[in-house]
Design a protein around this nucleic acid. Structure first.
Length: 399
RNA sequence: GGGUCGGUACCGAAGUGGCCAAACGGGGCGGUCUGUAAAAUCGCUGGCUUACGCCUUCGCAGGUUCGAAUCCUGCCCGGCCCA
């Protein structure tokens, strides 16, 4: 019994196109996939900032898909490159980390990584296995294989150089080390976000120089955050893999309508035909984007938690934001003596300072049992059992 | 090593002796609206004070002055040019 050829090639097509930014060289990778030999898929990470968001999951889902076709993931812990910090897309030099921090971060990272990727089909390698043995001679040899012009063809480096921002030689070493990793583990394909193109290509370059078959480059798109800008911790527009279900659900609901179809494409298995239908329906105003967003939120929460958690998160969302009722879990805040509303807001963590608390009251953002608070004179008594609310999302029950 | 330019609040960026808690933009937060924690729109955005007001902040440390983010000296950090 043989597989229908049509179905198989469809699979590969989708594998190489859906949620993919660029494959270099696509025809070669296609051939190697069809050869039936298991490929070594390199994915590196620097244990610097271990919090992963769903943007990272786009690539992890791809790794998983390859694994399901029988390929082997090689996860590289960049314990050396972490000391430099990836300069890609960076305007400034990063601060360096201690060995202990690196170890702890690596743990945290892997805990998240293996929520998507199959641990059984993953080989974990630390850079120190090879860089720990490196001598100055090796380092000089490596440095001698790349030119300054090559490095400055990288937009990040060039921009920093041209605008006069600081740029250290150490940072120029980063792509070289990453390239050498590919040599060390004999990578067939290296995965990364589009911001990794330069670094991964450096690996191709180096492998070719050393007479090896150059690795294929598999780039996944960097997805926009909930506000449409680049997803990044600094913009606070991420949906983190470790977020509890309700928060994850809420963050997805808060995203801009325009990014919906893309999220469906890269983060769910909803058939592409359906995704296109959604796009059309939205453009034609035939569907409330909110409903699509709810479906997306359910799909994603279920992926990182489970169906039940997703359903519960949805129910809580509907209750709080659609029906505008109080959320179910309102933390209690006990006071021992009568206290003014301003003090309570600060003590309960609803406002960072008394000045801010007063501003919130002035702006009409503070409610006690649903009644808007006017002025700063309101006093709450112990055992009052009232709900103090700031904005639509922060609640505390004062007891 | 020499010359020169620069370091301002969460970020970017004005301000170059008093009118500066410091323009403007972004972000954040809040209000309104809304079928969404979308969009739109309005407001707020150092701390303490019911309030008058007071206190701390413009790389760091001193100094000049009635008064300094603004002037002077030293130091630290970065860019560029020259070597």
């Amino acid at each position: 019994m043989s597989l229908p050829l049509g179905a198989l090639s469809m699979d590969v097509s989708e594998l190489l196109s859906r949620g993919v930014a660029e494959v270099i060289v696509e025809s070669e990778l296609r051939t190697r996939l069809q050869s039936g030999t298991p490929l070594r898929l390199k994915q590196g990470f620097d244990p610097t900032k271990p919090d992963m968001h769903i943007g990272h999951a786009v690539g992890l889902r791809k790794l998983r898909a390859f694994q399901e076709l029988g390929h082997q993931v090689v996860l590289i812990v960049g314990d050396w490159t972490a000391q430099i910090g990836d300069p890609s897309g960076r305007d400034e030099t990063r601060t360096r980390l201690s060995a202990a921090e690196v170890r702890a971060n690596a743990e945290t990272y892997m805990e998240q990584f293996f929520r998507v990727v199959d641990r059984q089909r993953t080989e974990v390698r630390w850079q120190s296995e090879w860089f720990g043995q490196f001598t100055l001679e090796h380092a000089l040899d490596l440095a001698g294989r790349f030119t300054l012009a090559q490095m400055l063809s990288h937009e990040t480096f060039r921009k920093r150089y041209e605008t006069g921002a600081p740029l250290t030689i150490l940072e120029l070493m980063y792509p070289m080390l990453q390239a050498y990793d590919s040599v060390a583990i004999k990578a067939d394909v290296e995965f990364g976000g589009t911001d990794q193109k330069f670094n991964i290509l450096a690996g191709r370059e180096l492998m070719a120089q050393l007479g090896m078959t150059p690795q294929q480059v598999f780039l996944v798109p960097l997805i926009p955050g909930t506000d449409g800008r680049k997803m990044s911790k600094t913009f606070n527009n991420t949906v983190d893999i470790r977020m509890p279900p309700a928060e994850m659900y809420g963050r997805i609901m808060s995203m801009s309508d325009e990014v919906l179809p893309l999220y469906f494409e890269v983060l769910t298995d909803v058939p592409m035909v359906e995704v296109h239908e959604m796009k059309m329906a939205m453009a034609a105003g035939q569907v409330n984007p909110r409903d699509l967003k709810m479906r997306l939120a359910r799909e994603i929460v279920a992926q990182f938690h489970d169906q039940a958690a997703a359903a519960a998160a949805e129910a809580a969302f509907v209750r709080q934001f659609v029906e505008r009722e109080l959320p179910e879990d309102i933390p209690n805040f006990a006071i021992k003596a009568p206290a003014g509303i301003v003090e309570v807001l600060v003590a309960a963590g609803l406002a960072p300072s008394k000045s801010e608390a007063r501003r919130l009251i002035d702006g009409g953002g503070v409610r006690v049992d649903g009644e808007r608070v006017e002025g700063y004179t309101l006093t709450l008594n112990p055992g009052a059992n009232v709900v103090v609310q700031v904005g639509r999302r922060k609640f505390v029950r004062v007891v």
